[in-house]
């Protein structure tokens, strides 16, 4: 497998499975680092971003989600556009990327989302808006009646720059049926991303791992993403999301060990040879495993975040924000070169 990686040959399904079953953690890390350095040298990217989760009211109630509420339930909230703008105005540090994801609110019309994007873009024309997972986009198509391309085009015309990679979870239909039966099926998730790519909207992709899925499920997930990327080239980063053990709503005795986190990072880098970046998302991994992942093929650590509700609802023990100084220190101490980027991976300094 490693010979293939070092000579630039594509790993197949059996290779990927053998890697997951292998105990050669350091061999994987070395090969993944080789690929990462071929693509980006010593560079590791970070961004100044801010998350906004406009509502936790959601018609889906996925088993692993500790964030969502039903309408009217204790703790349910929904922000007005005015409230969103006030939060952005109150953010003391500058940011270049705004990340917006939330629940599927039963009462909000499509126009609410269009207005949200327009108003934000009007107030902050230079900030890139990365908003709405494929699950939300699918929900919008039912509200708009415009079809997938029409819905995405409308959002794009208002200022949507990019789609985040959430809602992918695990593509396998059996696991998906047990984890999140109400959520769109894998085929639809891929369809939304393909449509976005054909409209020139870049996207990310994720995989929630370490719960009830098997290594085969992880490999199939990666293979499906690689196949779509081969057709469109529209994915920027793949983000393996480490299941948070404390959410506890599904029966999981196994949660990903730090070793599994690193292994998954390395295998992702080796298998997804057509993805520019593998991201070590510090919110889910914690700062320490995030940093260690830079030795296992990761070339992006996400950003300052500022305010995060979803992973923290599930018990993530990471901080709610990192300063740029902390991110630079983390990257530098891993003997890499920190590079500030915007949402579309252009090098910036704001």
């Amino acid at each position: 497998m490693f010979d293939k990686a070092y000579s630039g040959k594509r790993l197949d399904r059996d290779d990927a499975l053998a890697l997951f079953n292998s105990d050669d953690l350091f061999g994987m890390g070395k090969a993944a680092s080789f690929i990462a350095e071929n693509l980006h040298g010593k560079k590791v990217y970070y961004t100044r971003n801010r998350h906004i989760n406009p509502t936790n009211v959601c018609v889906n109630r996925c088993k692993f989600c500790a964030f969502s509420r039903s309408a009217g339930e204790d703790g349910a909230y929904a922000m007005t556009i005015g409230e969103i703008l006030a939060r952005l105005a109150a953010t003391s540090s500058p940011f270049s990327e705004l990340h917006i994801v939330g629940g599927l609110h039963p009462d909000w019309p499509f126009s609410y989302y269009l207005d949200m994007i327009s108003e934000i873009k009007k107030a902050y024309p230079r900030i890139q808006i990365k908003a709405f997972t494929a699950v939300e986009i699918d929900h919008f198509t039912k509200l708009s009646g415009l079809g997938l391309r029409g819905t995405l085009s409308e959002l794009k015309s208002r200022g949507l720059d990019m789609l985040p990679g959430g809602g992918a979870e695990i593509f396998d239909s059996n696991v998906r049926g047990r984890l999140c039966p109400e959520k769109i099926p894998a085929a639809r998730w891929l369809e939304v991303h393909e449509a976005a790519h054909t409209l020139g909207i870049k996207t990310n992709a994720t995989m929630l791992y370490g719960h009830i899925e098997t290594y085969e499920d992880r490999v199939d997930h990666l293979m499906a993403l690689r196949a779509l990327q081969e057709r469109t080239g529209g994915f920027q980063a793949f983000i393996p999301l480490s299941y948070q053990p404390i959410s506890g709503a599904i029966d999981v005795t196994r949660y990903p060990s730090g070793i599994d986190d690193l292994k998954t990072m390395a295998v992702s880098r080796l298998v997804l040879d057509n993805f520019p970046h593998i991201k070590a998302y510090w919110i889910m991994l914690g700062e320490k495993i995030c940093q260690t992942a830079l030795y296992f093929g990761a070339t992006d650590i996400d950003g300052t975040v500022v305010e995060e509700k979803i992973a923290h609802s599930a018990g993530a023990s990471s901080a709610e924000m990192l300063t740029t100084g902390e991110m630079i220190n983390l990257i530098t101490k891993a003997q890499k070169e920190p590079v500030e980027r915007n949402a579309t991976y252009e090098e910036v300094s704001i």
Partner: peptide, 12 residues
Amino acid sequence: TQGIKTAQVALR
């Protein structure tokens, strides 16, 4: 001092 996950990695 390191958290459970980093301690796991430390075993390697």
